[in-house]
Amino acid sequence: MNRRYVIRRLLQVLPAVASILLVTFVVVHAAPGDPVVAVAGESGNAEYYAFMREKFGLDRPVVAQFWTYSSNVLRGDLGTSFVQGQDVKDLIAERVPATLLLMGSALLISTVGGIALGALAARRPFGPLDLSVSTGALIGYALPSFWLAQLAMLTIAFRTGWFPIQGMTDARADYSGMAHYVDVARHLALPAMVLAASEVALITRIARTGILAEMNSDYIRVAQAKGLSESGALVHHALRNALLPVVTVVGTRIGFLFSGAVLVETVFGWPGLGRLVLSAAQTRDHPLLLGMVLMVAFSLVLANLLTDLVYSRVDPRIRYR
Protein backbone atom coordinates (compact mmCIF):
# COMPACT_ATOMS: atom_id res chain seq x y z
CA MET A 1 0.00 0.00 0.00
CA ASN A 2 1.19 3.42 -0.91
CA ARG A 3 1.98 5.30 2.31
CA ARG A 4 1.52 8.76 0.85
CA TYR A 5 -1.91 7.82 -0.42
CA VAL A 6 -2.94 6.47 2.97
CA ILE A 7 -1.81 9.60 4.79
CA ARG A 8 -3.54 11.95 2.38
CA ARG A 9 -6.68 9.86 2.47
CA LEU A 10 -6.67 9.90 6.27
CA LEU A 11 -6.29 13.69 6.26
CA GLN A 12 -9.39 13.99 4.09
CA VAL A 13 -11.42 12.73 7.03
CA LEU A 14 -10.96 16.05 8.84
CA PRO A 15 -12.83 18.31 6.39
CA ALA A 16 -15.54 15.68 6.06
CA VAL A 17 -16.10 15.62 9.82
CA ALA A 18 -16.01 19.44 9.96
CA SER A 19 -18.61 19.62 7.18
CA ILE A 20 -20.94 17.28 9.02
CA LEU A 21 -20.65 19.32 12.21
CA LEU A 22 -21.16 22.61 10.36
CA VAL A 23 -24.22 21.50 8.38
CA THR A 24 -25.99 19.98 11.37
CA PHE A 25 -25.19 23.00 13.55
CA VAL A 26 -26.54 25.44 10.95
CA VAL A 27 -29.71 23.39 10.46
CA VAL A 28 -30.47 23.22 14.18
CA HIS A 29 -29.55 26.88 14.67
CA ALA A 30 -31.75 28.05 11.82
CA ALA A 31 -34.80 26.16 13.07
CA PRO A 32 -37.77 28.35 13.95
CA GLY A 33 -38.76 28.78 17.59
CA ASP A 34 -36.75 29.78 20.61
CA PRO A 35 -35.18 26.78 22.36
CA VAL A 36 -35.38 28.61 25.70
CA VAL A 37 -39.12 29.05 25.37
CA ALA A 38 -39.38 25.41 24.36
CA VAL A 39 -37.58 24.25 27.51
CA ALA A 40 -38.73 26.85 30.03
CA GLY A 41 -42.32 27.12 28.85
CA GLU A 42 -44.17 30.28 27.91
CA SER A 43 -44.14 31.83 31.38
CA GLY A 44 -42.95 35.14 29.97
CA ASN A 45 -40.60 35.63 32.91
CA ALA A 46 -37.74 37.55 31.28
CA GLU A 47 -35.37 36.95 34.17
CA TYR A 48 -35.91 33.22 34.05
CA TYR A 49 -35.39 33.23 30.29
CA ALA A 50 -32.11 35.11 30.73
CA PHE A 51 -31.04 32.60 33.36
CA MET A 52 -31.81 29.68 31.09
CA ARG A 53 -30.10 31.37 28.17
CA GLU A 54 -26.95 31.74 30.24
CA LYS A 55 -27.20 28.24 31.68
CA PHE A 56 -27.27 26.66 28.23
CA GLY A 57 -24.68 29.08 26.86
CA LEU A 58 -27.12 30.51 24.33
CA ASP A 59 -25.99 34.06 25.16
CA ARG A 60 -22.51 33.36 23.89
CA PRO A 61 -21.31 34.14 20.34
CA VAL A 62 -22.34 31.70 17.63
CA VAL A 63 -18.76 30.62 17.03
CA ALA A 64 -18.30 29.71 20.68
CA GLN A 65 -21.56 27.78 20.58
CA PHE A 66 -20.37 25.89 17.50
CA TRP A 67 -17.13 25.05 19.30
CA THR A 68 -19.02 23.69 22.31
CA TYR A 69 -21.33 21.71 20.05
CA SER A 70 -18.45 20.23 18.07
CA SER A 71 -16.44 19.21 21.09
CA ASN A 72 -19.51 17.66 22.71
CA VAL A 73 -20.31 15.65 19.60
CA LEU A 74 -16.73 14.52 19.13
CA ARG A 75 -16.60 13.38 22.75
CA GLY A 76 -19.67 11.29 22.01
CA ASP A 77 -22.13 13.46 23.94
CA LEU A 78 -25.20 13.64 21.70
CA GLY A 79 -27.54 15.15 24.26
CA THR A 80 -30.72 13.80 25.81
CA SER A 81 -33.85 12.61 24.05
CA PHE A 82 -36.84 14.92 24.62
CA VAL A 83 -39.29 12.11 24.77
CA GLN A 84 -37.45 9.16 26.26
CA GLY A 85 -35.36 11.21 28.68
CA GLN A 86 -32.30 9.04 28.09
CA ASP A 87 -28.91 9.72 26.53
CA VAL A 88 -29.26 9.73 22.76
CA LYS A 89 -25.95 7.89 22.50
CA ASP A 90 -27.21 5.04 24.70
CA LEU A 91 -30.53 4.83 22.88
CA ILE A 92 -28.76 4.53 19.54
CA ALA A 93 -26.04 2.18 20.76
CA GLU A 94 -28.70 -0.15 22.16
CA ARG A 95 -30.39 -0.48 18.76
CA VAL A 96 -27.36 -0.50 16.45
CA PRO A 97 -26.48 -4.23 16.65
CA ALA A 98 -29.84 -5.41 15.31
CA THR A 99 -29.69 -2.92 12.44
CA LEU A 100 -26.10 -3.88 11.63
CA LEU A 101 -27.09 -7.55 11.51
CA LEU A 102 -29.86 -6.71 9.05
CA MET A 103 -27.66 -4.42 6.94
CA GLY A 104 -24.78 -6.89 6.90
CA SER A 105 -27.02 -9.73 5.73
CA ALA A 106 -28.54 -7.54 3.04
CA LEU A 107 -25.08 -6.39 1.92
CA LEU A 108 -23.95 -10.02 1.60
CA ILE A 109 -27.08 -11.22 -0.20
CA SER A 110 -27.10 -8.29 -2.61
CA THR A 111 -23.39 -8.48 -3.42
CA VAL A 112 -23.34 -12.21 -4.11
CA GLY A 113 -26.71 -12.19 -5.86
CA GLY A 114 -25.92 -9.08 -7.88
CA ILE A 115 -22.58 -10.41 -9.14
CA ALA A 116 -24.12 -13.74 -10.07
CA LEU A 117 -26.99 -12.09 -11.95
CA GLY A 118 -24.63 -9.61 -13.58
CA ALA A 119 -22.37 -12.41 -14.82
CA LEU A 120 -25.40 -14.31 -16.09
CA ALA A 121 -26.66 -11.27 -17.95
CA ALA A 122 -23.24 -10.50 -19.43
CA ARG A 123 -22.93 -13.94 -20.98
CA ARG A 124 -25.16 -12.99 -23.91
CA PRO A 125 -25.47 -9.23 -24.04
CA PHE A 126 -28.89 -8.14 -25.28
CA GLY A 127 -30.03 -11.77 -25.32
CA PRO A 128 -33.27 -12.90 -23.70
CA LEU A 129 -31.67 -13.73 -20.35
CA ASP A 130 -29.87 -10.39 -20.25
CA LEU A 131 -33.06 -8.53 -21.09
CA SER A 132 -35.07 -10.26 -18.38
CA VAL A 133 -32.34 -9.75 -15.77
CA SER A 134 -31.97 -6.10 -16.76
CA THR A 135 -35.71 -5.56 -16.71
CA GLY A 136 -35.96 -7.22 -13.33
CA ALA A 137 -33.19 -4.97 -12.04
CA LEU A 138 -34.99 -1.87 -13.32
CA ILE A 139 -38.22 -2.91 -11.65
CA GLY A 140 -36.45 -3.88 -8.42
CA TYR A 141 -34.82 -0.48 -8.38
CA ALA A 142 -38.20 1.26 -8.64
CA LEU A 143 -39.98 -0.49 -5.78
CA PRO A 144 -40.06 1.41 -2.50
CA SER A 145 -38.52 -0.86 0.16
CA PHE A 146 -41.33 -0.35 2.67
CA TRP A 147 -43.92 -1.44 0.11
CA LEU A 148 -41.84 -4.41 -0.99
CA ALA A 149 -41.73 -5.40 2.67
CA GLN A 150 -45.53 -5.36 2.84
CA LEU A 151 -45.74 -7.29 -0.43
CA ALA A 152 -43.38 -9.92 0.96
CA MET A 153 -45.69 -10.30 3.93
CA LEU A 154 -48.79 -10.53 1.75
CA THR A 155 -47.37 -12.99 -0.76
CA ILE A 156 -44.83 -15.06 1.14
CA ALA A 157 -45.36 -14.79 4.88
CA PHE A 158 -49.16 -14.92 5.02
CA ARG A 159 -49.51 -17.59 2.34
CA THR A 160 -46.84 -20.03 3.45
CA GLY A 161 -46.54 -19.24 7.12
CA TRP A 162 -42.85 -20.15 6.94
CA PHE A 163 -41.56 -16.81 8.08
CA PRO A 164 -42.50 -14.90 11.21
CA ILE A 165 -43.42 -11.32 10.40
CA GLN A 166 -42.70 -9.42 13.58
CA GLY A 167 -39.60 -8.90 15.67
CA MET A 168 -36.27 -10.67 15.90
CA THR A 169 -37.06 -13.65 18.12
CA ASP A 170 -40.09 -15.69 19.01
CA ALA A 171 -41.40 -14.11 22.21
CA ARG A 172 -43.27 -17.23 23.32
CA ALA A 173 -40.35 -19.60 23.07
CA ASP A 174 -37.16 -19.37 25.05
CA TYR A 175 -34.55 -20.83 22.76
CA SER A 176 -30.90 -21.19 23.62
CA GLY A 177 -27.79 -22.16 21.71
CA MET A 178 -28.30 -23.33 18.15
CA ALA A 179 -32.08 -23.04 18.31
CA HIS A 180 -31.74 -19.36 19.15
CA TYR A 181 -29.67 -18.67 16.03
CA VAL A 182 -32.11 -20.58 13.86
CA ASP A 183 -34.94 -18.55 15.35
CA VAL A 184 -33.16 -15.25 14.61
CA ALA A 185 -32.30 -16.40 11.09
CA ARG A 186 -35.94 -17.23 10.37
CA HIS A 187 -36.97 -13.76 11.54
CA LEU A 188 -34.10 -12.20 9.59
CA ALA A 189 -34.73 -13.89 6.24
CA LEU A 190 -37.57 -11.76 4.87
CA PRO A 191 -36.39 -8.30 6.01
CA ALA A 192 -32.86 -9.02 4.77
CA MET A 193 -34.07 -10.17 1.35
CA VAL A 194 -36.40 -7.19 1.00
CA LEU A 195 -33.63 -4.79 1.97
CA ALA A 196 -31.26 -6.52 -0.44
CA ALA A 197 -33.70 -6.31 -3.37
CA SER A 198 -33.00 -2.78 -4.58
CA GLU A 199 -29.29 -3.24 -3.87
CA VAL A 200 -29.23 -6.38 -6.01
CA ALA A 201 -30.57 -4.28 -8.86
CA LEU A 202 -27.73 -1.79 -8.53
CA ILE A 203 -24.98 -4.40 -8.20
CA THR A 204 -26.35 -6.36 -11.13
CA ARG A 205 -26.09 -3.34 -13.39
CA ILE A 206 -22.58 -2.48 -12.24
CA ALA A 207 -21.34 -6.07 -12.45
CA ARG A 208 -22.86 -6.57 -15.90
CA THR A 209 -21.23 -3.44 -17.28
CA GLY A 210 -17.88 -4.29 -15.72
CA ILE A 211 -17.85 -7.89 -16.90
CA LEU A 212 -18.89 -6.90 -20.41
CA ALA A 213 -16.10 -4.35 -20.66
CA GLU A 214 -13.49 -6.81 -19.39
CA MET A 215 -14.67 -9.69 -21.57
CA ASN A 216 -14.17 -7.47 -24.61
CA SER A 217 -10.58 -6.60 -23.72
CA ASP A 218 -7.46 -7.95 -25.37
CA TYR A 219 -6.11 -10.07 -22.53
CA ILE A 220 -9.34 -12.06 -22.46
CA ARG A 221 -9.08 -12.55 -26.19
CA VAL A 222 -5.54 -13.85 -25.72
CA ALA A 223 -6.66 -16.20 -22.96
CA GLN A 224 -9.43 -17.52 -25.16
CA ALA A 225 -7.08 -17.83 -28.13
CA LYS A 226 -4.91 -20.04 -25.96
CA GLY A 227 -7.90 -22.29 -25.47
CA LEU A 228 -9.41 -21.15 -22.19
CA SER A 229 -13.16 -21.56 -22.10
CA GLU A 230 -15.41 -18.53 -21.79
CA SER A 231 -16.38 -19.40 -18.23
CA GLY A 232 -12.74 -20.03 -17.35
CA ALA A 233 -11.73 -16.64 -18.73
CA LEU A 234 -14.55 -15.05 -16.79
CA VAL A 235 -13.79 -16.66 -13.45
CA HIS A 236 -9.99 -16.61 -13.60
CA HIS A 237 -9.34 -13.31 -15.35
CA ALA A 238 -12.26 -10.98 -15.94
CA LEU A 239 -14.08 -11.21 -12.64
CA ARG A 240 -11.37 -9.79 -10.41
CA ASN A 241 -11.00 -6.71 -12.60
CA ALA A 242 -14.68 -6.33 -13.31
CA LEU A 243 -15.59 -6.35 -9.65
CA LEU A 244 -13.49 -3.37 -8.60
CA PRO A 245 -16.40 -0.98 -9.26
CA VAL A 246 -18.55 -3.16 -7.02
CA VAL A 247 -16.09 -2.52 -4.19
CA THR A 248 -16.09 1.24 -4.75
CA VAL A 249 -19.82 1.62 -4.30
CA VAL A 250 -19.92 -0.21 -0.97
CA GLY A 251 -19.48 3.08 0.90
CA THR A 252 -22.37 4.72 -0.94
CA ARG A 253 -24.53 1.66 -0.53
CA ILE A 254 -24.16 1.75 3.23
CA GLY A 255 -25.94 5.11 3.19
CA PHE A 256 -28.85 3.63 1.22
CA LEU A 257 -28.83 0.55 3.44
CA PHE A 258 -29.21 2.71 6.55
CA SER A 259 -32.28 4.52 5.23
CA GLY A 260 -33.66 1.33 3.69
CA ALA A 261 -33.13 -0.55 6.96
CA VAL A 262 -35.04 2.11 8.89
CA LEU A 263 -38.03 1.74 6.57
CA VAL A 264 -37.97 -2.06 6.34
CA GLU A 265 -37.57 -2.40 10.10
CA THR A 266 -40.70 -0.38 10.79
CA VAL A 267 -42.71 -2.82 8.67
CA PHE A 268 -41.23 -5.99 10.17
CA GLY A 269 -40.98 -4.69 13.71
CA TRP A 270 -37.27 -5.47 13.68
CA PRO A 271 -35.88 -4.15 16.97
CA GLY A 272 -33.24 -1.88 15.41
CA LEU A 273 -32.92 1.82 14.68
CA GLY A 274 -36.06 1.87 12.53
CA ARG A 275 -38.52 1.83 15.40
CA LEU A 276 -36.44 4.46 17.18
CA VAL A 277 -36.45 6.76 14.15
CA LEU A 278 -40.16 6.20 13.56
CA SER A 279 -41.11 7.25 17.08
CA ALA A 280 -38.62 10.13 17.00
CA ALA A 281 -40.12 11.34 13.71
CA GLN A 282 -43.66 11.14 15.03
CA THR A 283 -42.89 12.90 18.32
CA ARG A 284 -40.54 15.40 16.64
CA ASP A 285 -37.77 14.29 19.00
CA HIS A 286 -35.03 16.53 17.52
CA PRO A 287 -32.06 15.47 19.65
CA LEU A 288 -32.64 11.84 18.72
CA LEU A 289 -32.98 12.64 15.02
CA LEU A 290 -29.87 14.82 15.16
CA GLY A 291 -28.03 11.96 16.84
CA MET A 292 -29.13 9.65 14.03
CA VAL A 293 -27.91 12.09 11.37
CA LEU A 294 -24.52 12.37 13.08
CA MET A 295 -24.19 8.63 13.65
CA VAL A 296 -25.02 7.74 10.05
CA ALA A 297 -22.85 10.55 8.65
CA PHE A 298 -19.81 9.46 10.66
CA SER A 299 -20.41 5.82 9.74
CA LEU A 300 -20.37 6.81 6.09
CA VAL A 301 -17.10 8.73 6.49
CA LEU A 302 -15.61 5.63 8.06
CA ALA A 303 -17.08 3.29 5.44
CA ASN A 304 -15.77 5.43 2.60
CA LEU A 305 -12.33 5.60 4.20
CA LEU A 306 -12.18 1.82 4.61
CA THR A 307 -13.45 1.30 1.06
CA ASP A 308 -10.76 3.54 -0.38
CA LEU A 309 -8.00 1.92 1.65
CA VAL A 310 -9.11 -1.57 0.67
CA TYR A 311 -9.45 -0.42 -2.91
CA SER A 312 -5.95 1.00 -3.03
CA ARG A 313 -4.69 -2.29 -1.66
CA VAL A 314 -6.60 -4.36 -4.21
CA ASP A 315 -5.70 -2.10 -7.12
CA PRO A 316 -2.18 -0.72 -6.79
CA ARG A 317 -2.75 1.70 -9.68
CA ILE A 318 -4.69 3.94 -7.30
CA ARG A 319 -2.54 6.68 -5.85
CA TYR A 320 -2.20 10.43 -5.79
CA ARG A 321 0.23 11.91 -8.21
Partner: peptide
Amino acid sequence: ELFQSVPRFFLVLLIVALFG
Protein backbone atom coordinates in the same frame (compact mmCIF):
# COMPACT_ATOMS: atom_id res chain seq x y z
CA GLU B 1 -19.39 18.97 -0.90
CA LEU B 2 -20.72 20.43 2.34
CA PHE B 3 -24.24 19.58 1.21
CA GLN B 4 -23.16 16.08 0.20
CA SER B 5 -21.36 15.30 3.45
CA VAL B 6 -24.54 14.53 5.35
CA PRO B 7 -26.80 11.58 4.46
CA ARG B 8 -29.79 13.08 2.72
CA PHE B 9 -32.58 10.89 4.05
CA PHE B 10 -31.70 11.47 7.69
CA LEU B 11 -30.95 15.17 7.20
CA VAL B 12 -34.36 15.63 5.58
CA LEU B 13 -35.99 13.79 8.49
CA LEU B 14 -34.32 16.17 10.94
CA ILE B 15 -35.14 19.31 8.97
CA VAL B 16 -38.79 18.38 8.46
CA ALA B 17 -39.11 17.58 12.16
CA LEU B 18 -37.53 20.93 13.07
CA PHE B 19 -39.18 23.16 10.47
CA GLY B 20 -42.59 21.55 10.10
